[in-house]
Design a protein around this nucleic acid. Structure first.
Lengths: 220, 220
DNA sequence: TTGCGTTCGTTACAGGTTCTAACGCACGGA
DNA sequence: TCCGTGCGTTAGAACCTGTAACGAACGCAA
């Protein structure tokens, strides 16, 4: 046989299949009741199994949620990387890719950028995915701010650029990347949280306006 | 006697006192373990009472949390109103008042602007407090953008200005108020959620840079 | 084909939560 | 002084997470 499936033994194949089905049920549950209401017991019952059986596949609730967060980051990084490869890393394209991804499943967005769980710390491989995304963003900003003058906060970032993972972006690009992140998160998170409902205006236009302000030459 | 205390009968006085003590314990608990881990049982045990006694004072967990959200909004509105009265509603002053308030208790900030609970809808009196805050912000922005040219999104807001509650702010002011909200929320929420930890730069400088960009004349 | 060990799913249980129901007591207004 | 309202109690149902011990099935190897 071909070794297409990656995993080899039937047990591993079965185990992987059950793990993904658990995650699918978990996403459904999160979409309806939120991440805080995620119940291993309910997932098991829904799959025709009884309670503690799931502990063969995930060591606990935190373990499952960590896996979901990892998948969410991975999905976002792939979406961003895909548009970067297709549109040549235009900043506007990245922004709208981010919004499309967030609107596709708001709960998935909040799993990453929502209210943090007090005791929880993400493992290293997850933060690594996060810096993948940042690298793509920095690349796009560097193309725009090739020789833009450094802003005040940009020089501050220049002095503390360990987070850029060695990317040779100029200060103005570092500044633009950070404002890209925070401004778009600001609009998106308030929109997804429903704080704009009933206000009457079009959130998409607001987002587009922020993207325009972001890609303009002014104070990035 | 004077009717200073508002409540009259001793029973009402006692009831009010217990209700506030419950809320104090709840805030302590939220500060250490987050809102999702708030336990009525633990609060009761901490107060020397046993479990269901609290249901005399709050009809359930949701009722208590709603009250906490109301208090949080009220506290924010008071803080904003205080600086508006003191500093004459300078936009910068409002921004830093917001950050100070948020840093004073991050969990309280997330209780308002964090991940929304799927089924939950805030009662009308809470949204009323929210528009109090917006009114102050609009007033401050109107002083800045007295006769500023309308932006594209500003005219869109002009056409859907029901959320401004009849405030006679010009389009540029409407636009500035919304970007004030989303941009500062963007920086603040990511900072409070810990997404900047380990990056090395100073979040306060980033916030200040965004405030500067916000109060500048460029694309509001 | 026949073992045999690993892994799976089960039930039983401990301890936690929210919330309802029914009971007794004690406080306060009349 | 009396009596009703309101308070706190215990008991219990229905959930939840997570552990422990048991039996069965599956797959690899001889």
């Amino acid at each position: 046989m071909t070794q297409d499936d990656g995993t080899k033994t039937p047990r591993e194949r079965y185990r992987a299949q059950v793990r993904t089905e658990i995650k699918e049920r978990a996403w459904e549950q999160i979409a309806t009741a939120g991440a805080s209401a995620l119940s291993l017991n309910a997932i098991a019952k829904q799959m025709g199994m009884s309670g503690p059986a799931l502990y063969r596949y995930y060591s606990g609730r935190d373990d499952l949620i960590t896996e979901l967060v990892r998948d969410a980051y991975r999905s976002l990084a792939d979406a961003i990387a895909a548009t970067a490869a297709k549109d040549g890393a235009e900043v506007q394209a990245l922004a709208h890719a981010l919004r499309d991804w967030a609107l596709r499943d708001p709960h998935r967005y909040f799993l990453i950028y929502g209210t943090p769980v007090p005791g929880y710390h993400a493992p290293d491989d997850i933060t690594a995915i996060s810096s993948e995304i940042m690298a793509i963003l920095l690349e796009a900003c560097a193309k725009v701010d090739g020789d833009a003058p450094a802003t005040a906060f940009g020089t501050h970032l220049e002095e503390h650029r360990d987070w850029a993972n060695g990317h040779p972006a100029p200060p103005a690009a570092l500044h633009r990347a950070m404002t890209f992140w925070t401004r778009l998160h600001g609009v998106l998170s308030l929109e997804l949280a429903g704080h704009f409902t009933g206000m009457g205006f079009d959130p998409a236009r607001f987002f587009a306006a922020e993207v325009d302000a972001l890609t303009g030459p002014c104070p990035a």
